[in-house]
Design a protein around this nucleic acid. Structure first.
Lengths: 144, 144
DNA sequence: CGGGGTCAGTTCAAGAGTTGAACTCAGTGC
DNA sequence: GCACTGAGTTCAACTCTTGAACTGACCCCG
């Protein structure tokens, strides 16, 4: 069901625009990697959906399925670089959700260990704008 | 269908975790405000879905429905502050999607007019980390 | 005064996706 | 041999989504 659009938001939503996919990504970011771990931590996901989503994510190059032992064949799912980049989306949702709901999860910098936020950043002005009003325009080339 | 969870990602997804809602928010951010405008610009959305989503968003306090004339009653939908804050999520998807798909949309700072990105930011270190590895942990209070 | 057009939706049948429960199958520990 | 674990698959019931058509209020035009 690929929509033939150019909007990056729409193409992102083609992959992760459902109730479950980003919860799976969230738990992969949390360090879960095995099917059964994900089934336990992704709140009430039916195994059929989990299997289906992991397949889509693998097909999209977002996760990688690795067999980590073969006597009883066992698999681990890990995020690729592309998948780790999706952390910004999950993080943005966490940042937003934290303002409007109680939370037991936090987004933490892998290096300094501090809680972090997802914010706007203008590379031209080198200016960060956590709550800036932002517009979405049809293109930078033919500005609306 | 409220999930009784505390994860901010999950509660955000309860509201916007479907194929359409964030496309509607995107176009509200783009300055569209009337039903017919949204129907035209949200790629192929069925009017029943659009009406339904606008109702949910209004109930969630993300948009506000204003009657802007009453001879023929006409309505405009506008984002509240809460809704504008969702721009970070849409922006994160745009940022991610732009790296993996061609784009005709751009995220623009409302003030300086430059194209902007959505990035991680650590308020403690005052350090911005566009591609930093990030972890999601169970809580900052009782660290995992 | 009648016809066509716009806007903001609603209605409805058909189809697609989701849910929950149960089941499979291989291997392992006891 | 037997229960258990991990990694899924299968299936029927249910719900949600899709697309197309329709409504109804109001305008403008001749």
């Amino acid at each position: 069901m690929t929509r033939k659009v150019q909007c990056p938001v729409a193409s992102t939503l083609d992959l992760v625009g459902d109730r479950w996919t980003l919860l799976v990504v969230r738990d992969l970011l949390r360090g879960r990697s095995r099917f059964s771990e994900l089934r336990e931590t992704v709140e009430g996901i039916p195994p059929a959906i989990l299997a289906n989503r992991l397949k889509s994510l693998e097909a999209a190059g977002v996760v990688q399925r690795r067999q980590y032992q073969d006597r009883p064949p066992r698999f681990a799912y890990q995020l690729t670089a592309k998948g780790h980049a999706l952390g910004v989306v999950v993080g943005a949702m966490a940042t937003w959700g934290e303002q409007y709901a109680d939370s037991d999860l936090a987004l933490v910098d892998g290096e300094c260990g501090h809680g972090i936020r997802v914010v706007y950043h203008c590379p031209t002005c080198a200016r960060r704008s956590p709550r800036r009003r932002v517009r979405i325009v049809d293109s930078l080339r033919h500005e609306v």
